[in-house]
Design a binder for these strands. Sequence first.
DNA 1: GTTTTCTTTTGATGTAAATCACAAAATTAT
DNA 2: ATAATTTTGTGATTTACATCAAAAGAAAAC
Lengths: 185, 185
Amino acid sequence: MEQLINYIEEFVKLDDDAKAALHALTEMEYFVKSEYILEPDRRCNKIWFLKRGMVRKFYLNDGREKTVWIHTENQTFTSLESYAQNTPSKEYLQTCEDSELISITKDNSEKLAKFPKIVAFVNAMMAREFANIDKHTKALNQRDAKGKYEYLREIAPELLKRAKLGHIASIIGVSRETVSRIRKA
Amino acid sequence: MEQLINYIEEFVKLDDDAKAALHALTEMEYFVKSEYILEPDRRCNKIWFLKRGMVRKFYLNDGREKTVWIHTENQTFTSLESYAQNTPSKEYLQTCEDSELISITKDNSEKLAKFPKIVAFVNAMMAREFANIDKHTKALNQRDAKGKYEYLREIAPELLKRAKLGHIASIIGVSRETVSRIRKA
DNA sequence: GTTTTCTTTTGATGTAAATCACAAAATTAT
DNA sequence: ATAATTTTGTGATTTACATCAAAAGAAAAC
């Protein structure tokens, strides 16, 4: 919980009321390695904060897993399409390691709307997310395999150290063999 | 203006107050073909609705233009990173044809926050945008050149008819020659 | 209505990276 | 510890697409 508050306070300072509301409305969740947090066809009605561990988001594209992203400590995540539009998810969320999460349901997060500081945080985070998606898409579109790998090292060095080679390859959209060769060189 | 209201009313019905506020707070803008609506290093503090014409969003990547998207009638657009984070834009917005736009400044759009229907519209539109970005990114990442072209035809047939071949090629990230060959086949 | 400029087409050539095939290494299960 | 499974590494081959070059076509300028 302390970690989540620190994370939020990078954006805005919170008063005691807001902190108490966060305590009351969030929940701890524990998953062992390889457990599914979310599977397709379920509605995703939570946002998670990753306190410890690693979580992979992926979907199936003619039977082959396509990794969207791998989250490491102190990141928030959800299956955005499902969450935002209340539709069944097309994505899996699966732990890569034993993980501790803090979750908040959509219902509860709406109750936080009365705290202007928290609304400001959510807006700032959304703006940052938008900007990041933009940046990633542009970066991964324009570069060759080595450039993509290096971009990933720039923005997520932790991920590169801990995630499986095959998953990394899938994120940047190149074959496993190519990533193996990039690493050798 | 009628067009903008129709567009909004696909999401939510508006009462007369809200319509009046829209009238008061928005502005018509007229641009001739090839004119710049936005250039890099300027802050983008507006959202536009395209009433007539066509607008291309692009940026420079070592001196080469990379087209992000081309908007046609009845679409809203802005330079999101700049708008959301109040930072200088990295993008150009340029008309491809003589165009009529309805614009609203960020300041004025905040004044609309007192109309719950309009807030609901903005949220619904944002949710849809999120979902679309997600969908595009996935679609354009996984397919070969022909698949990318066909995806574009599915989601934006109008764009394919009216935009220049070179701009279309740039959107889907393949060479002009390749698009020409796809069309011939 | 001609000329100039920009855009698209078409063919030839080169290359980055996918795919295939199998070996080595590392995890996981028994 | 040993076997079974999964993941990673390495070479050979293929291929989709970029790039180069030059002509044909269309649009803009004069």
